[in-house]
Amino acid sequence: MAEPLTEGTTPVQVANRASGSEFWYLLRKNPVTLFGLIVVALLILMALFAPLLAPYDPYATDPRISLQPPSQEHLFGTGIWGEDIFSRILYGARQDLAIAFGAVAVALVIGCLLGAVAGYWEGFFGEAIMRVVELLQAFPAFILALAIAGALGPSFRNLIIAIAFTNVPIYAHLMRVSILSNKRSQYAMAAIASGNPHWRVLFRHLLPNSLGPIFIQSTLQPGYAILTAAGLSFIGLGVRLPEPEWGLMVAMGSSRIISGEWWVSLFPGLFIIIAVMGFNLIGDGLQDIFDPHRN
């Protein structure tokens, strides 16, 4: 049975995007999303103010206090070399968030460009681009990142490149589909009929209208990026010691869990979970908010 159309709404009200105040209204009705936003905001603050918040130098070691359980002096305990885990987690937020945002930004720019071009010029050119993208996608994301990170060597920059690579196909596909559907709209035809050259139709008219799905995806993606970064660092292909990175910290303590020093791995692991969860809650919530079939 057909849904009753809200007849009272002239096109004035059916703007296809939520405007500012409406967005906050929706957010308040989506407490889960709001929670995700708060979590991520706190993590960002944590990263920004790590020097002020950290009680100790994250690089300082002191063999005399190695592997101490959580206490008042060392909130999350100390590691093998007597480093303060709490301080390192705070500084680690800088590393992990920078990797996540960096990788997503790089992937977003490259993926969107490829997808947009492939969607607009559907023929041979577009097909060729998408075949290459699919080639990247054929590998499991982690394996691909592993191969790239392995080939480039472990470093902060290479980690970003590796993770960005695994994210490019997602954005390329989303952008292509989005461009394809917008291309058939009357406003795209009107733009061509107005005498716009193709590059201008694509970048001035179509691209801004195709960013919606990309926006939602890019709120989900940093969570996975952190997971991949932690994973790669865990097996030694990412950030290297003595940099404080959560995955690396988990790795450092992993052999200690059996001998009872659980805190070395647990707390950084916990933060990985919190960060991933935070981003995912935002992404899921936004998907609901911007879903055109919501009503």
Binding site: R17, S185, Q186, Y187, A190, A193, G195, H205, N209
Partner: peptide, 20 residues
């Protein structure tokens, strides 16, 4: 592109034909 200045089109769906 130059010739198009001399032939223009008005589309069916006024909302869809204007870039939002």
């Amino acid at each position: 592109r130059v010739m198009r200045a001399n032939m223009q089109m008005v589309f069916q769906d006024p909302y869809d034909s204007l870039n939002p």
